[in-house]
Write a protein that binds this DNA or RNA. Structure first.
Lengths: 159, 159
DNA sequence: CTTGACCCTGGACCATGGTCCAACCGGCAT
DNA sequence: ATGCCGGTTGGACCATGGTCCAGGGTCAAG
């Protein structure tokens, strides 16, 4: 049955060869069969697996979550609730990001609206804001981080 | 006039000592004066600068953009338009992210709504979707990336 | 037989914004 | 003089998801 080499798998899935090897290293793909020369040999189920991972990535799942989803899919005792839980966490995460980001956008928009380009920088309200804004530091602690820079120490937020 | 050492500056700005040294290495802070023993000596303008950078970060600006904004602020020939341009680019970037992310959230929410937890994973519509969805790959090329994983090769989007 | 396209491995490197480390020195109190 | 806190340096390391490279081996075509 149609075995293919890594380049073929990669092309079929629309990723680079290195990505395939990376997924293997990360434990997302099984260690494939090899030819006598050591070439990796894949089959349709591997392609399907890579496709699954790519789909998950496109929906914002991390590789780690993709790994969990694959494990759940392979389980015959798990029920859909586990998948739903991961998905709900991802939704909550997306919503938190959306809120933070739209707050930032609103703030930037306000500042941009106030800024008449044709003045010297010394009269720029955006710079003035950046320069002055340090009092509201304390009470703004709820939205302290910027954008999507989830701090390395912000663990557990998603999954 | 009140000079302070790195730990004092860091505490006053609410960051770590290493962050101050990092900003210095990145060219965001000037190389400070030193005591005979080599200790860095800062003054109020340095604190103000760190505060500016932190404010910019909180609004989603990168350190590189913060550097640009500081340069503009220091210029006596630049006009506010340059600052506005950076800000408008940031807004556009935020809006693009918001759209992608809310599309993803909607998709996830749809899937979650369809999923009755109490079935075996083999009947999970979320997994089914992830498994099947590879045909729409081609025409979905407009929103190909996930979430905030701006690909390393996506340069020029912001700034 | 040679060329070119493919494959192998292990490891370095990219961006981002820091954080932490060892190994050392300075300065003050007890 | 001993402890302790804080300063110095250069460099490694964190997460994330790959990407690229050198220095080989393999395989089919011409």
């Amino acid at each position: 049955m149609g075995n293919f080499k890594i380049g073929e798998l990669a092309a079929a899935a629309g990723v680079g060869r290195d990505t395939i090897r990376y997924y293997e290293r990360m434990g997302l793909l099984r260690e494939p069969a090899r030819t006598a020369a050591g070439y990796r040999l894949y089959d349709a189920t591997d392609l399907e697996r890579v496709n699954f991972i790519r789909s998950a990535r496109e929906l914002g799942f991390t590789l780690e979550q993709a790994r969990q989803l694959l494990a759940l899919r392979a389980s015959d005792t798990a029920h859909a609730q586990a998948v739903l839980d991961i998905t709900l966490a991802k939704i909550a995460d997306a919503e938190a990001r959306l809120e933070r980001l739209s707050d930032i956008r609103d703030m930037l928009r306000m500042l941009a609206d106030e800024c008449p380009g044709e003045v010297p920088v010394s009269d720029c309200p955006i710079l003035a804001f950046l320069t002055a804004r340090r009092k509201d530091q304390q009470h703004n602690k709820k939205h302290q981080a910027a954008q999507d820079e989830r701090s390395p120490r912000a663990k557990g937020v998603l999954s």
